[in-house]
Design a protein around this nucleic acid. Structure first.
Length: 88
DNA sequence: TTTCTTACA
DNA sequence: TGTAAGGA
């Protein structure tokens, strides 16, 4: 069994994210392509999804299920991120 | 074996 | 959104 040696942060391949978000690889790659999320890339050019990325996919998925399109989600995500840094 | 990109339906 | 081809 391959044990976990000192890991930096938890990142998962697209196949794990698919299970966690219940999305298809197509959707995950497509949403990222649309700028809904920006996962990191490893040496193999593979997407490295962290917990934060998975959580954001949950939000994206909820909007898709609500009937929101990419443009709408982009606006919502942009607003949410702005709210975080906006406080006044 | 798994993931990636591009393209078409 | 699903699937195919070709490559890493």
């Amino acid at each position: 069994m391959s044990q976990n040696v000192p890991k930096k942060q938890a990142c998962f391949p697209i196949r794990v994210v698919m299970e966690m978000t219940n999305l298809t690889a197509r959707q995950i790659r497509y949403y990222e392509e649309q700028g809904l999320i920006k996962p990191k890339r490893n040496e193999g050019n593979q997407r490295m999804f962290s917990l934060e990325d998975v959580e954001r996919f949950h939000l994206i998925r909820s909007y898709i299920e609500k009937g929101v399109n990419i443009a709408g989600i982009k606006a919502i995500l942009a607003t949410s991120e702005s709210e975080e840094t906006k406080r006044d």
